[in-house]
Simulated assay, not measured.
Amino acid sequence: MRELGGTANTDGCPDIWEMENGDIVVVGRDVTESHANRLPGDVTVRADERLVMIPRHLLMAAKPDIPDA
């Protein structure tokens, strides 16, 4: 996020990166409690999962690096 100018260089900056095994990890705000009731009825969040919000511009900046399915 520092490269995008969207941080004050403090702890807790949103980020996206690819792990060595190809999995994607996201750092963002935990909005599970405040947003769980906004999900479509067929979406569930398990006890070991969290809803994580990242800024739109972060995902848009990462888009060129995300391969098409």
Results as ranks from 00 to 15, higher is better:
residue 65 D to F: 14
residue 11 D to C: 07
residue 33 E to V: 07
residue 23 D to G: 04
residue 34 S to G: 11
residue 9 N to A: 13
residue 42 D to F: 06
residue 61 A to N: 11
residue 16 I to T: 00
residue 67 P to A: 15
residue 27 V to M: 14
residue 40 P to D: 02
residue 45 V to Q: 05
residue 10 T to H: 07
residue 15 D to N: 12
residue 56 R to A: 15
residue 39 L to H: 04
residue 41 G to P: 00
residue 22 G to H: 04
residue 22 G to W: 03
residue 21 N to Y: 02
residue 40 P to C: 01
residue 6 G to Y: 05
residue 61 A to P: 04
residue 48 D to E: 12
residue 4 L to K: 00
residue 7 T to E: 00
residue 13 C to Y: 01
residue 19 M to V: 02
residue 12 G to Q: 02
residue 45 V to L: 05
residue 3 E to Q: 13
residue 2 R to T: 07
residue 60 M to V: 08
residue 54 I to G: 12
residue 54 I to F: 07
residue 44 T to D: 08
residue 41 G to T: 01
residue 48 D to Y: 07
residue 16 I to H: 00
residue 19 M to T: 13
residue 66 I to W: 10
residue 66 I to M: 14
residue 64 P to G: 09
residue 58 L to D: 09
residue 49 E to M: 12
residue 40 P to I: 00
residue 58 L to E: 09
residue 26 V to T: 11
residue 40 P to S: 02
residue 44 T to R: 12
residue 38 R to S: 15
residue 9 N to C: 06
residue 37 N to L: 09
residue 29 R to W: 11
residue 17 W to P: 00
residue 21 N to T: 04
residue 6 G to V: 02
residue 40 P to M: 01
residue 57 H to K: 10
residue 14 P to V: 01
residue 32 T to F: 11
residue 57 H to E: 13
residue 46 R to A: 15
residue 64 P to A: 09
residue 16 I to E: 00
residue 64 P to C: 10
residue 27 V to Y: 13
residue 55 P to T: 08
residue 35 H to Y: 12
residue 27 V to Q: 14
residue 36 A to T: 11
residue 21 N to A: 03
residue 6 G to W: 03
residue 62 A to Q: 10
residue 51 L to E: 06
residue 31 V to K: 10
residue 62 A to F: 10
residue 63 K to N: 08
residue 59 L to E: 07
residue 37 N to R: 10
residue 61 A to E: 10
residue 49 E to N: 05
residue 56 R to S: 13
residue 15 D to K: 04
residue 22 G to V: 04
residue 56 R to M: 13
residue 2 R to Y: 04
residue 11 D to H: 08
residue 4 L to C: 00
residue 51 L to S: 08
residue 32 T to W: 12
residue 16 I to N: 00
residue 9 N to L: 14
residue 26 V to K: 07
residue 40 P to R: 09
residue 9 N to E: 10
residue 62 A to V: 08
residue 36 A to Q: 14
residue 20 E to W: 03
residue 56 R to K: 14
residue 34 S to R: 12
residue 6 G to Q: 09
residue 66 I to K: 05
residue 59 L to T: 06
residue 19 M to G: 02
residue 62 A to I: 05
residue 65 D to W: 08
residue 10 T to Q: 15
residue 56 R to E: 14
residue 58 L to V: 11
residue 51 L to N: 09
residue 41 G to E: 03
residue 61 A to W: 07
residue 47 A to T: 04
residue 14 P to C: 02
residue 30 D to V: 05
residue 30 D to P: 03
residue 44 T to L: 09
residue 57 H to M: 10
residue 2 R to S: 09
residue 43 V to Y: 03
residue 31 V to A: 15
residue 17 W to C: 06
residue 39 L to I: 02
residue 31 V to P: 14
residue 26 V to G: 06
residue 47 A to I: 02
residue 68 D to E: 13
residue 13 C to W: 00
residue 8 A to Y: 04
residue 31 V to S: 14
residue 45 V to P: 01
residue 9 N to I: 04
residue 12 G to D: 01
residue 43 V to W: 05
residue 26 V to I: 15
residue 55 P to M: 08
residue 27 V to P: 01
residue 61 A to Q: 05
residue 54 I to E: 11
residue 54 I to T: 08
residue 27 V to G: 11
residue 20 E to G: 03
residue 22 G to I: 04
residue 69 A to Q: 11
residue 56 R to F: 10
residue 44 T to M: 07
residue 39 L to C: 04
residue 40 P to K: 03
residue 12 G to W: 01
residue 43 V to L: 09
residue 26 V to S: 08
residue 64 P to W: 07
residue 53 M to Q: 15
